[in-house]
Design a protein around this nucleic acid. Structure first.
Lengths: 209, 209
DNA sequence: AGATTATGAAACGAACCCGTTGCGTATCGG
DNA sequence: CCGATACGCAACGGGTTCGTTTCATAATCT
């Protein structure tokens, strides 16, 4: 096996190197198709090859099965890193939910989300990948905001962070999924946060600063 | 066109009548397959016919396309009508979420839910049918509970019922979807309700009766 | 009996998609 | 130049599903 050291010291096998352009166009074609609503099971290697302007051989040489390809494709999705980190906890939460709401307007985002939610049973690796790449970073960001609020006293000191996260994110998902007839509803993030902060019970005195 | 009046006064065309047994087995086979995780797009008429022990002709004679069949199949799903209507609002809400949680343990329910959430883009008629058959009745039940609480003073008089519903249901869905590694988490309904009732902000005095 | 319609089974041609192979060409190292 | 590998393309045999048609049989009404 003949190899050679490049200037950066990376071993390279003999022969024509693989085209990075082909790599990118395959991944991009995959994401495009998924973003158009094609489910993982309906996604065909042939359609990817056609969309990418690439021979099927080129795909099979890189990935042995469809799921591996989709996993790698999802891995290239960079989360827009919604880092509010500014004013009050209330404002940071609203900002965060606004990002989620804005994302949900993009057809592509909704389709990817659908894949993550529905194919989690049949494609656990996909679900896991999506979790660690998209869900977990955001969860951490919001959790940090909540914990800051618990320290400053803006939130209850005994708040259940996980549960608060579920209430906020769940409500946002609920509205993006079942908002009837696609009405804009621009103020949903504010309303979610305010309702969650206040709680459902009446309060006699308002301890807000 | 020769017809005849039956005892109930229903007009009947000449010739061999359609088999109601075939009707039922086709619908049931459809629901079985969907309940096993087969998506609407992967669902094939041939597989339904095979499962139902029926010729494809018999299916095509009744439904002109797959979506119509699935719509009719979903229409036969009776919601278990979770009607708490008993003690405090808090207990009724917990009872309701417990029903949702219990349902989400059944594989069939999860699959149907996935179809309703994911195929809503490509099959709006399916989503609409599911909405009016499953979501709406439950929404009405919980809304009634919440309104009762607003009258009795157990809940804030200015509570946003829709938003409260989104927070509760959204959080429950969130946990059923992303509960890591399938841990039981039997107390989730209580925790959701209590956290939602209390709200995130600290309170100085507790106005509960 | 005779007319009429439904049923299940089988087969049809067409369309996809699978994963693989062969082909001529392109791009690398030596 | 030569060996090696990758490329796009076309074709392969094999599979599934489509929607339709044909056929012998079954059920119902006149």
């Amino acid at each position: 096996m003949k190899t050679q050291q490049t200037a950066e010291g990376v071993a390279r096998p003999a022969g024509r190197p693989r085209s990075e352009k082909a790599d990118r166009s395959i991944i991009e074609a995959t994401l495009e198709l998924l973003g158009e609503g094609i489910g993982v099971s309906e996604l065909s290697i042939e359609s990817i090859a056609g969309r990418a302007g690439v021979g099927k051989t080129t795909i099979y040489r890189r990935w042995s099965n469809k799921e591996d390809l989709v996993v790698d494709a999802l891995a290239t999705l960079k989360p827009p890193i919604p880092l509010p980190q500014g004013g009050t906890v209330r404002d940071d939460l609203v900002t965060y939910l606004r990002v989620i709401q804005e994302e949900s307007r993009h057809h592509r985002t909704r389709c990817i989300m659908n894949i993550a939610m529905s194919d989690s049973e049949r494609h656990p690796r996909l679900a896991e990948r999506f979790r660690e790449l998209t869900m977990e970073p955001r969860r951490a960001v919001v959790a940090a905001v909540l914990r800051r609020g618990m320290e400053t006293g803006e939130l209850r000191a005994d708040l259940d962070v996980d549960m608060a996260l579920a209430l906020l994110s769940g409500a946002m998902i609920w509205y993006t999924k079942w908002s009837h007839s696609g009405d804009p509803q621009a103020d949903i993030p504010e309303r979610i946060v305010d309702e969650a902060l206040k709680g459902f019970r009446p309060r006699t005195s308002t301890p807000e600063p």
